[in-house]
């Protein structure tokens, strides 16, 4: 992602510090490695006229924001109790088997990573995974298999029934 593209995002929010979370999340979701690096934090700080330290504090505090490189697809699994006791562990176990990595570890090809997150308000659709802003609901092993295959093939599927809104 070029500096110009980042600046374009910041400008879209009129360099308004109130919109710092939107700015950071937008940049992160559009960046290749899925995180906010220090240079980007400096850029945002400068444009918003706040200190870099505060930008970093924010990046490190909010769970959606990342300060280290992420996999191409980060599969997020709800581990709050409503989901946790309604089949979610099946998903994480299955992912661990299929991907051969533990939680928060990247697959060798850099494509996948999974980790638990707290409730995202999709408890009625559990088990599901969430990728960026998108929920893939009511998963079964078959559906998961297909999802991974699609993602590997570079095809970002929109599964029926869930929320399927790719970020603008």
């Amino acid at each position: 992602m070029t500096t110009e593209e980042k600046i374009a995002i910041i400008d879209r929010y009129h360099s308004n510090p109130e919109q710092i979370l939107n700015i950071l999340v937008d940049i992160q979701f559009q960046s290749e490695a899925g995180y906010i690096d220090q240079q980007t934090a400096q850029l945002v700080a400068e444009k918003l006229d706040i200190s870099e330290t505060r930008v970093y504090e924010i990046v490190s505090f909010y769970a959606i924001l990342k300060e280290t490189p992420q996999a191409r697809y980060v599969l997020k699994i709800c581990d709050s109790s409503p989901c946790h006791f309604s089949g979610e562990p099946v998903v994480s176990q299955w992912l661990q088997e299929k991907l051969g990595v533990g939680e928060n570890q990247m697959t060798q090809d850099g494509l996948f990573m999974y980790h638990g997150i707290p409730c995202v308000g999709a408890c009625a659709q559990t088990p599901f995974v969430k990728i960026k802003g998108e929920v893939f609901p009511h998963l079964t092993p078959e559906k998961l298999e297909k999802l991974l295959a699609d993602l590997k093939a570079g095809y970002y599927p929109e599964l029926v029934g869930g929320e399927s809104h790719v970020e603008a």
Binding site: P17, E18, Q19, L21, I58
Partner: peptide, 28 residues
């Protein structure tokens, strides 16, 4: 009315943390 988005922090639902977050600060 203006829309502000969070970025993943339950505590931001606490009213004063919420206001900090709206002001572009960490939501403590």
């Amino acid at each position: 009315i203006r829309v502000i988005s969070g970025a993943g922090a339950y505590v931001c639902g606490e009213s004063s943390a919420l206001l900090n977050s709206i002001e572009g600060k960490t939501g403590r």
